[in-house]
């Protein structure tokens, strides 16, 4: 069974395929570009710049925040300032970099508020749907942390890649077929624009949610496991479907439809 990893060359290939798909799609999203890095075994990495994200605050998230110590948090919990922040989007840059140790893509990101101040760990925590915020709490040091960017050598947020290969492996055909048995009704696909950054995320423990997501990726589901080309073509999109929500990177659902 496929272990869910990619070689450096596969990553390079998958990136090019992914860019073709994403950049071709007519949507309001920014375009991915490829940054050449000869010292990298994948020869470079993917960049998505200037993504505007609304500062989302919901009452639910406020409840999940029990301890507030910092001045900034006080500010956030104040309803008067909330409206103001919501209208001012923050800007994020995402880098998808091949991880040489885990042989999987890793997402790095950095963002700034409209006032120029960098987005910090708590900002991210507050902007996430509650189940992901909970993940962040429970795995303070192993889920999302600020790490040194492998090429820029500056601190960037990074989603830890150690679980990626097992999730990707779960998405491979054999396992999926086993798992999708027993779910009679496929979950309804959501419409675009409907709180994309909060859309159903396959949490690491829930099989149902995996299947939910995979409904959108029929070709991975139907492809024979040994069709190497296929998993490379769709690897990054599949991967982003569960990584994106944790880093608030909206993945247009039309991309999954176009795979049909």
């Amino acid at each position: 069974m496929w272990d869910g990893t990619l070689s450096a060359a596969d990553f390079q290939y998958a990136s090019k395929e992914f860019m073709k798909l994403w950049n071709h799609e007519e949507c309001n999203m920014n375009q991915w570009s490829w940054e050449e890095r000869p010292e990298s075994s994948a020869q470079g990495y993917l960049i998505l710049e200037g993504v505007s994200l609304p500062e989302i605050e919901t009452p639910l998230m406020h409840e999940s925040l029990s301890m507030e110590t910092d001045d900034k948090e006080e500010l956030f919990s104040d309803d008067a300032t909330l409206t103001d922040l919501t209208s001012q989007p923050s800007r994020c840059t995402y880098h998808v970099i091949y991880n040489e140790s885990y042989n999987v893509p890793t997402i790095y990101f950095r963002g700034y508020h409209s006032d120029g101040s960098p987005i910090n760990w708590l900002d991210i925590h507050m902007s996430l749907p509650s189940h992901l915020a909970q993940q962040m709490d429970q795995n303070r040091w192993t889920f999302l942390t600020q790490e040194e960017h492998p090429y820029l050598h500056r601190p960037w947020f990074m989603l830890h890649p150690c679980g990626t290969s097992s999730i990707m492996s779960l998405m491979s055909t054999e396992r999926l077929k086993q798992k999708s048995r027993g779910y009679a009704t496929p979950p309804e696909p959501r419409k675009r624009g409907e709180g994309e950054d909060k859309q159903a995320v396959p949490s690491r423990s829930s099989d149902l949610e995996f299947d939910t997501k995979l409904e959108f990726i029929p070709s991975i589901r139907e492809a024979p496991t040994n069709q190497v080309g296929n998993y490379r073509d769709q690897y990054l999109l599949t991967w982003l479907s569960f990584v994106g929500p944790a880093v608030r990177l909206p993945v247009p659902l039309d991309l999954f439809k176009s795979l049909n």
Binding site: T142, E147, P155
Partner: peptide, 15 residues
Amino acid sequence: FDLLSPCEGEDSVKW
């Protein structure tokens, strides 16, 4: 902060 990853004491180093 722009150059070094934040270090929140021994916990950061440990992890």
